[in-house]
Structure formats: C-alpha cells, structure tokens
C-alpha cells in the first residue's frame, strides 16, 4: 500500500512537471527570439521582434481593425463550410443507402477529387468576381467532396444488422436516413469535418489574398505589399489561433452530438 501511494505521488509530480514544461517552453522560445533580435543576431527586417509584434497587435486591436478582419474571415469560413456540409452529408448518405446513386456518382467524385483546390481559384474568380460569393464558394467547393467521401465511408461502415433492424420494424426512407445512416455515420462524418476545416483555413487565406478587401488573408497580403512586417506576424499569429479555436470548436461539437461514443 505504501508503495502504491508513493507511485501515485510520483505520477502526480511527473504530471505537474509536464504541465510546467509545456507552458515554459513556448515562453522560453519567445524570450530567446526577443534576446536574439535585441542583440541583432537575427535580421529584424525579416524576423521582427516579439515586443514590436505585441505593440502592433495592441494597436490593431484598439483601433477595431483586427476584430473586423477576424470576424469577416470567420463568417466566410462558417458560411462556406455550412454550404459544403449540408449537401455533402446528404449526398454521402444517399450514396451509402442507394447503390445505383453510388455507382453513378462515385466515378465523378473520383475524377474531381485529386484536383488541388487552389487550382480552382482563377475559374471561380471568373465566375463570381471578387465578391463574397467568390470566397464562400471557394471554401464550399474545396470542402464538399471531402465531406461527401467521409460521409459515404461512414455509412458503408455501419454494421448491416442495424439496417436489418430498421427494415424489420418497417422503416420508411426518412427513417433510414435519420435513425440509422446519419447517426451511424456521424463519427466518420466528423473526421471529414475536421479535415475539411483544415482545407477551409488554407483556402480562406488564399482567396482573401487574391480577391478581397478584408479578412486575415488580405491583412497578411497587404502587410507584404507595404512591408509592415509586424502586422504580417500578427496575421500569422491569428491564423494559428484560428486553427486552434476551430479544432476546439469541432471537438466540443463532436462530444455534444455523439454522446454515445466510447471515449
């Protein structure tokens, strides 16, 4: 018994040490950056200085400009993502439930899937101009196939006995969608949504760099053009934050929507 207590104490100690390390190491890196920059051991024209970036960050925040860019980018990602997710999930479920639909649609998806989404930007610019529709459609088209493919995989992986249960109780078409295919595919659908979110962040920056007057991508690009390095670093920092928050958000959503999943 004594020895178990000792083990426990040791384990606790080790965990606390882990936490200290994971907070200290990024701070240490920042300090090192600051020191190197002040000692002029790194070129501040390219690598700036943490304290300068922080000052710029504060100024942008106070002026309200930062919030404006963040909010508009967030809206574009959310709307574009929703525009992709709804038809993507419905199409994926339908392909999974009805074999002829799958046979007809799968080769088309297989052909379109490998096209790098960035290659679509010029075409989308031609079609939609540089308005909001362009940014939203870029994200939507970039994510929709990913979501469809993952939804299909989710339905295909459902144990057929669950479909038999539904059929035996006289399930209608709607019941197959809502009580078996959708809930059964949800875990894999979420995998698709997570991958899609990564693609969406990539595309929003690209779309805002070439066809926008606002947003984080626009902010980063204009910083380059006017050589405002600090502002550029703020933009990069925001993207990192963006990615972190969106992953957190999807994970929370997943835990809320799939309470039946063994953790």
């Amino acid at each position: 018994m004594d020895s178990t207590l000792q083990d426990e104490a040791q384990e606790l100690h080790r965990r606390r040490w882990d936490r200290v390390l994971s907070v200290a190491s990024p701070l240490l890196l920042l300090a090192l950056w600051e020191v190197l920059s002040r000692a002029e051991l790194i070129d501040t024209r390219f690598f700036s200085r943490p304290s300068w970036i922080l000052t710029t960050f504060w100024d942008l925040l106070v002026s309200g400009e930062l919030v404006r860019h963040v909010v508009i980018s967030l809206m574009r990602v959310l709307v574009g993502f929703t525009v992709a997710a709804v038809p993507g999930v419905i199409l994926g479920l339908t392909m999974g439930l009805f074999r002829p639909v799958r046979a007809a649609v799968e080769p088309i998806i297989a052909a379109l899937y490998p096209i790098p989404k960035l290659a679509l930007l010029p075409l989308l610019l031609l079609i939609f101009g540089t308005g909001e529709t362009f940014k939203i459609m870029t994200i939507a088209l970039g994510c929709v196939l990913l979501i469809t493919v993952n939804t299909l995989a989710g339905v295909v992986n459902i144990d057929p006995v669950y479909l038999d249960v539904a059929r035996n109780f006289g399930a209608g078409r709607r019941d197959f969608y809502l009580t078996v295919a959708l809930p059964g595919a949800l875990p894999v659908i979420f995998t698709g949504l997570k991958l899609g979110m990564g693609v969406a962040l990539l595309l929003i920056v690209a779309a805002e760099m070439i066809g926008a007057r606002s947003g984080i991508g626009y902010m980063i690009w204009t910083s380059y053009q006017i050589f405002d390095l600090e502002q550029m670093y703020v933009g990069l920092l925001l993207m990192a934050f963006f990615g972190y928050v969106s992953t957190l958000f999807i994970n929370l959503l997943e835990r809320w929507i799939i309470p039946w999943k063994r953790s």
Binding site: V161, Y162, D164, V165, A166, F169, T179, G184, I258, W260
Partner: peptide, 23 residues
Amino acid sequence: FQEQSVLPWMTVRENIGYGLRLR
C-alpha cells in the same frame, strides 16, 4: 438478432421504443 443489434447511438429507452417510433 443473433449478434449485438442494439443501436449504439440510442439510449436504452430509445432502443426499446424504436420499433414503436417507426410505427
């Protein structure tokens, strides 16, 4: 059914009522 056929995404209550719900 022979194998495990209780729907994992429904609670015990929802599972028992599943057939009635479909009807």
